[in-house]
Design a binder for these strands. Structure first.
Length: 956
RNA sequence: GCAGGGGUGGCGGAGCCCGGUCAAACGCGUGGGACUUAAGAUCCCAUGGCUUAGUGCCUUCAAGGGUUCGAAUCCCUUCCCCUGCACCA
């Protein structure tokens, strides 16, 4: 026996990281490429620098490496580049925080092994970038990712910038860029910010949504001004009964579009931000307006202005139009005034004013009567305007009304129109007739990192990429259909996503990292827009890193030649100041490696990254360079939610986990814990569990390698070979589907069980087990490469396993009959055990096994193969028919179990032989004599119970 | 708002596309056993209910209805949960 070593993942992984480096496993050839050799270009969506790698990131990267390694073993030249995406402001914001001495962020660095000394580097974005780059590369290597370090790039490198400049010049040239109006969430100080839950740019309000209010204009009676009320539900204008205003708030009268409007102060500011010219005329207290009559737009009716306490100056215009039939707030507001005349008297209003305030039913929605607001308030027991349940009541009614409601007969030309349609129509009409305007606002308060409030700002000359271009969309959709996109749902679904993809803002102003728009340097190209065509740059990047190319060389003619061959070699050489040889070489490299054979990314990329990734390729490159495949992976969740680098969960550092459980264990976990296409939750137990399984593998392979028996191959040896190939075949199919869980199930877990069985059945043939062990190591090498290299070394092969040839399915070794026979023995054991238990015998004298007669096998075959009534079918056969009653009763059994039966059956001799060979094993196992009897040569009744592959058992 | 995914046993999670071999993989948990001085690890058995010489029956895959000889799987309706996106990447 070989002395079995402990599985020490730390040591093994360190050793092989170095060996791979030494052997240049990951290096993709660039120069002397033999174009005959198949190539495989694979990349993952490069990470944005927001912090250190956590457990979630490595999932998708591991998948990418599984594929890269397998392709390599299958004889492909593999190019698996890596880089980072540092544009935007994440990096700036990290450095800012460190400079500000934010305790939390500093602690975060320390938690990831950053020393006191190094912290200062993080104060400067450029140095922080290099630190992070290094850390990412180390983490990836720690996980065994066989990516080509020589291709490394960052979106902030000047050479990369040149590439993006070219891309945008091309987009412009081809007419995919346009300029127009845009309303962005922006800080007065810092310009446009991203409002999202990760709250990178902002300190509060990540869940806010942009909303578009319709500002209704109410002409005041006998006055030269309009009151204004902002609403999200323009369709309810037909139900207006009054205006609400806060008596204590000071409003402004402003001059706007040649009219005078009454609005709250914040509203005036918002309007100004949104591009309106405003002239402040005077301040006016809410109470001064009470009791006045105004003309309700869309209704052409005079309605009164009433006091209320729920008009916030921050929301809309600070004045609310009241629709008590459908708005719970308004209903309660009106009700309060009716029931408490003193609230009116307080402001000198005559309570009789309320007589004309009668709710007008306007919408029929499912589940509600004429006055939904009244109903819901009563149902929920809402009594006053301070009740928090009002929010939820409002939402509920809106949802029902919007999706299932129809306008009723009080709504003029809109009657019987679904609310969904009426809403748009009414809005359009009121805007057209100058009865209303638009105000955009955020649904909740959003505060910038600097403390200033974020508002919606109108930008008039925003650059967009026009992904809505019909021809481009059609071409891209058609191509996507042909691509290998996993999961399948997404393959279908990306079609619609691309339809839905319209203009996308592609530039922004402010101090962001990234590429400046070449013809107008005040714009920085937006981070999503600068990461769509980038796999193409990786090829170039290798030459940049080698020192063959500098920023100066990367002029338009360079890319035109390399990517498109649009410029001649002559011209290009002149313009770039590069030798023709060099240019030709780079061109050849690019042409060899492109297109991208697979791009991998997390599910968040489904609607943001992948569609423009395809569309930019289609828009700019020739068809032969369009991408081939996309793989989307789902996430690893922490307890209770998504992991994000900028929030909690980040502490499950990828580096630490690799140290604790081992990189192979983590890769195994990623590969197997569930399908790539569902979210999973990581727990420590799961880590432990996979580590244990890997240890089992470690042990079992070594046991196989140490087997010494040299005589003839037995059935069980053929069986184990057959099993391996059966599993491998299934695994290959699963691999095509990118279902790594299934792959590992077959290759590791299922096969491990077979190995146990092989040992139990005294399989120990040296040559067989060695051969199996070697194939087993190879087959697992893409998934758990470190442990496999270490085991491979024990086979004394010269080449490392990562460079060896991936095993192919040996169809000739797949032997269904042998597998069935072994299945028979397994079932037999179970049956014997059951019987022993039932008759309560521990040590049987003799176990008699009756093997089913040949006619039953014929019947069995007929039952499985022929359609229709089993009994009828089998009785057509004379040999079976002469069995009489026995045949009928067996026929009944077969009929009943028709669909449960194995598809094939072994013959009597084979079954006898199989059991004969297993005899000593069974005797050993059950500690009693085993006698095998052909049921055609006995008169025991029990023999009648024998069935093919299921001998009858008699204990005596 | 736009788009998408899902509800399976004590739990995690397969199966569903291509209906029958599904009381439902695999793992965890639980119970029993072997080994051990013991614990752990490992191995074996059981794990919906009732039964039984290795069997058979009944009730199950959110709820209700339909298609079918047959449905966890196909169709319809209802309820519930989740996710992505909208100048973060």
């Amino acid at each position: 026996m070989i002395k079995m070593e402990e599985y020490n993942h730390g040591q093994i992984e360190k050793k092989w990281m170095e060996k791979w480096k030494e052997k240049e496993l990951s290096k993709a050839p660039m120069k002397e490429i033999d174009a005959e050799e198949p190539k495989y270009f694979i990349n993952f969506a490069y990470p944005n620098v927001t912090g250190f790698m956590h457990i979630g990131h490595m999932r998708g990267y591991s998948y990418t490496d599984f594929i890269a390694r397998k392709k390599r073993m299958e004889g492909h030249n593999v190019f698996f580049p890596g880089g980072i995406h540092a544009s935007g402001n994440n990096l700036l914001s990290i450095s800012q925080k460190i400079r500000n001495g934010e305790e939390e962020k500093i602690q975060y660095l320390k938690d990831h092994g950053v020393t006191e000394e190094e912290i200062k580097d993080y104060k400067e974005p450029e140095k922080a970038l290099e630190r992070f780059s290094k850390s990412y590369r180390e983490t990836w290597k720690r996980y065994g990712l066989s990516f080509d370090e020589e291709s490394w790039t960052s979106t902030t490198y000047p050479e990369y910038n040149k590439f993006i400049e070219w891309q945008f010049l091309k987009l412009k040239e081809k007419g995919y860029l346009k300029q127009g109006e845009y309303y962005a969430a922006a800080c007065p100080e810092h310009g446009p910010v991203a409002v999202d839950e990760s709250e990178t740019d902002i300190s509060k309000g990540g869940t806010a949504e942009k909303q578009e209010y319709v500002v209704l204009k109410f002409k005041a009676k006998d006055e030269d001004f309009y009151l204004t009320a902002a609403t999200l539900r323009p369709e309810t204008v037909f139900g207006q009964t009054n205006l609400f205003i806060d008596p204590e708030t000071t409003y402004l009268e402003i001059e706007i579009n040649g009219e005078n409007w009454i609005v709250s102060k914040p509203a005036a500011e918002k309007l100004e931000w949104q591009g309106k010219k405003i002239n402040e005329k005077r301040e006016i207290k809410g109470k001064e307006l009470l009791g006045k009559k105004v003309k309700a737009p869309g209704l052409d009716k005079w309605i009164p202005i009433l006091p209320s306490n729920f008009c916030s100056p921050e929301e809309g215009t600070g004045i609310v139009t009241s629709v008590p039939s459908d708005a719970p707030y308004d209903w309660i507001g009106v009700k309060e005034l009716k029931e408490n005349p003193e609230k009116l008297k307080k402001y000198g209003l005559d309570p009789s004013i309320m007589k004309e305030v009668k709710p007008i039913p306007i919408i029929d929605s499912k589940g509600y009567g004429e006055l939904p607001a009244k109903e819901i308030c009563e149902e929920k027991g809402i009594e006053n305007t301070k009740d928090p349940k009002l929010e939820e009541a409002t939402k509920e009614i809106y949802k029902k009304g919007f999706h299932s409601g129809k306008m009723n007969e009080n709504c003029d030309e809109y009657r019987r129109m679904p609310v969904e349609q009426a809403k748009e129509k009414i809005k359009e009409k009121m805007l057209r007739e100058n009865q209303a305007d638009i105000l955009r606002d955020l649904s909740e308060e959003v505060i910038c990192r600097c403390g200033k409030e974020i508002k919606i700002k109108r930008i008039t000359d925003q650059w967009f990429i026009n992904y809505g271009d019909k021809e481009l969309t059609e071409k891209a959709k058609k191509h996507a259909e042909k691509m290998d996109i996993k999961p399948e749902e997404y393959h279908e679904n990306i079609q619609e996503t691309m339809d839905w993809f319209k203009e996308r803002a592609a530039t922004r102003q402010g101090s962001w990292l990234g590429t400046k728009l070449p013809w107008d340097k005040k714009w920085v190209i937006e981070p999503i827009a600068d990461s769509t065509l980038y796999p193409a740059f990786y090829v170039i990047s290798k030459y940049v890193n080698k020192g063959d190319l500098t920023e100066e060389n990367l002029v338009k003619e360079f890319f035109d030649y390399i990517f498109l061959e649009e410029t001649s070699l002559e011209e290009s050489s002149k313009a770039t100041e590069l030798s023709k040889e060099k240019l030709r070489e780079i061109r050849k490299s690019f042409d060899y490696w492109y297109p991208d054979d697979l791009n991998e990314g997390g599910k968040e990329h489904k609607t943001v990254h992948f569609p423009p990734f395809i569309m930019n390729h289609v828009a700019l490159l020739p068809e032969k360079y369009w991408p081939k495949a996309i793989l989307v992976n789902w996430w690893i969740m922490g307890k209770g939610g998504k992991l994000s680098k900028s929030k909690g969960g980040a502490n499950i550092s990828a580096q630490k986990l690799a140290g604790k459980y081992g990189a192979d264990t983590m890769r195994l976990l990623y590969g197997h814990i569930s399908s790539p296409f569902s979210d999973i939750e990581f727990t420590e137990e799961k880590g432990e569990n996979y580590k244990r399984n890997l240890e089992k593998y470690w042990k079992k392979v070594q046991e196989l390698l140490s087997m010494k028996k040299e005589d003839e191959e037995k059935e069980i040896d053929k069986w184990i070979k057959s099993r391996f190939n059966t599993h491998l075949k299934k695994a290959e199919k699963a691999f095509e589907e990118k279902n790594f869980r299934k792959v590992i199930d077959e290759l590791l877990f299922e096969f491990m069980k077979d190995i146990d069985r092989y040992k139990e059945r005294k399989g120990k043939h040296q040559q067989t087990s060695r051969e199996i062990a070697k194939k087993w190591i190879k087959s697992m090498a893409p998934y758990t490469p470190f442990i496999c290299e270490e085991l491979w070394e024990k086979t004394n092969e010269e080449q490392i396993v990562s460079r060896s040839k991936y095993p192919e399915v040996e169809e000739s070794e797949v032997n269904k009959e042998i597998e069935l026979a072994e299945e028979t023995i397994k079932n037999l054991e179970k049956d014997i055990r059951n019987v022993l238990e039932l008759v309560d015998v521990k040590k049987p004298e003799e176990i008699k096994l009756f093997v089913a007669p040949e006619w039953k096998r014929k019947a069995y075959k007929i039952a499985v193969e022929e359609e229709g009534s089993v009994i009828k079918n089998i009785m057509k056969n004379d040999e079976i028919k002469k069995q009489g009653k026995k045949a009928a009763s067996y026929g009944q059994y077969l009929q009943k179990n028709k669909y449960k039966l194995e598809k094939e059956v072994i013959d009597k001799d084979k079954e006898m032989k199989t059991i004969e060979e297993a005899k000593s094993y069974l005797e050993d196992k059950f500690k009693g004599k085993v006698k095998i009897i052909d049921s055609e040569e006995t008169d025991k009744d029990k023999a009648d119970k024998a069935m093919p592959m299921k001998p009858a058992i008699l204990i005596e």
